[in-house]
Simulated scan of single mutants.
Amino acid sequence: MRRDHGFTLVELLVVIAIIGVLISLLLPAVQQAREAARRIQCQNNFKQLGLALHNYHDTHRNFPSISSSSTGYSPQALVLPFIEQGNLHDLIDFSQPLMLGSGPSVSLNPVHSGIPDRVLPMLLCPSESGDPMFIDGGETWAGTNYMVNVGSGNGLNYSEGNSPNGLFWRGSDTSFRDITDGTSHTILMAETLFGGRDQVSTTVLTDPQRQIKSVSGGAPGSKTAEDLDAASASGYTGKRAGSWIRATGFHITINGFYTPNSLNPDVSHHGYIVTSSRSNHPGGTQLVLADGSVKFAPETIDLAVWRALFSRGGGEVPQPF
């Protein structure tokens, strides 16, 4: 008589162990491949945004500005027709303020209802794992990871209300002629991470990559970045990068005060923000220069070089990175 032979329990366990080892070896490679694809998509987003800003400049003879009023619009909103969002741009009545009221009592202008919560994939980094949606004033807002360059960050070069040394501030009309450091040495936009929407505390810093340190006291733009960095926190919030349409510093601007992925939290003072570029890309962050080229900035970049890249006319000659 013929007897069928099956696997013994020991043989089965050995096979399972071998499969487990193979999976553990393969998983990091799969994750690296996925991150490589996400990084390429992020680079493509930056490339398209760089081209959009160039096309905006060709049309208007200057780069889009941050609204002179905090109740107005961001450069990201103004550039919509040049990133294939012309229909959305046409829905926005730029002749009216985005927000009504002033100070902490502002609310969305009803004529723009249903617009600010639209998620725009080109304004999102694929490696971002945070929440793009931000609830404020009873409204839901969609955020962006891609910030416009205000300046080097040191001194008052973080405040978009003080004509800093970058390319974008309130009422700016900068153009290529103003970039005396050279377009290949000056940042147009760089990325950041969404704030931890629920990471709000009056005392505790739990995640410097996601939380903002709030500092109170003094008039807007009256304190240097160095003073704000050293100041005690009045609280910590997760509101950064919460709206692509609002002309609020911590939503749409960036500067070079801290190196990429700094362990120091960003600092907010009356809406103006002292920042680091941040991302989930291993080892650094991405950006687009004024010449349209996309670069990867390592976390190890020299701080002086980093700040020089945010300056449009400081006379520095940053080393390649």
Rank of each mutant, 00 (worst) to 15 (best):
H112M: 04
R312A: 15
P81F: 11
P298I: 07
Q76I: 12
P208N: 11
S201T: 10
D173I: 01
E11S: 14
V204Q: 09
D302K: 03
G72F: 07
M122K: 05
F250L: 09
I18F: 15
Y56C: 06
N109F: 14
N62S: 13
S172P: 00
G256R: 03
I252V: 15
G242C: 10
V148H: 12
I83P: 13
P265D: 05
C42G: 11
V111Q: 12
T253N: 10
T59K: 07
N109A: 12
A241H: 11
D136Q: 09
T259C: 06
V106M: 05
P282C: 04
L80H: 11
T202I: 06
G284A: 03
S105L: 11
A52R: 05
G138Q: 10
L263A: 15
P265A: 07
D302V: 03
D181C: 01
D131N: 14
L156R: 06
E226Q: 05
Q286R: 02
N280H: 11
Y146T: 10
D229R: 01
S70Q: 13
A52W: 05
F250R: 03
S129F: 08
A17G: 14
L26C: 00
G153P: 13
V10K: 13
Y158H: 04
V15D: 13
S184V: 12
T253E: 13
C42T: 12
Q48W: 07
P121S: 11
G50K: 10
S201K: 08
S102L: 00
V200I: 15
D136N: 11
G101P: 02
D4Q: 11
A77S: 10
L22I: 13
T248A: 09
R3P: 09
R3Q: 13
Q76P: 00
F296G: 05
W306Q: 04
Q319V: 14
D58N: 07
M122L: 15
Q199G: 08
G217P: 07
H281Q: 07
I179A: 02
D90S: 15
D181S: 04
N45E: 06
I273D: 03
G86Y: 15
S243G: 09
Y73I: 03
D173N: 06
L22Y: 03
L88K: 11
R3M: 10
V215A: 01
T300E: 09
M1P: 13
T248E: 11
R39E: 09
R61K: 09
C125N: 13
A33Y: 02
H269G: 00
Y56W: 08
Q32K: 09
S95T: 12
D291R: 00
V288R: 05
L12Q: 07
Q85F: 15
R2E: 14
G103C: 02
V15M: 14
Q211S: 01
N162P: 06
C125R: 01
S232I: 04
A241V: 11
S262R: 01
P28N: 00
V200M: 09
R34S: 06
F94C: 08
L205M: 06
H57A: 04
Y56V: 05
G221F: 04
M133A: 02
N165T: 11
T144H: 14
R34Y: 10
G72H: 12
K223A: 07
I83R: 07
R118G: 07
T183D: 11
E35A: 06
G238C: 13
S70G: 12
P208H: 10
M122T: 14
N62K: 03
R118T: 15
R61C: 02
T203N: 12
L193P: 08
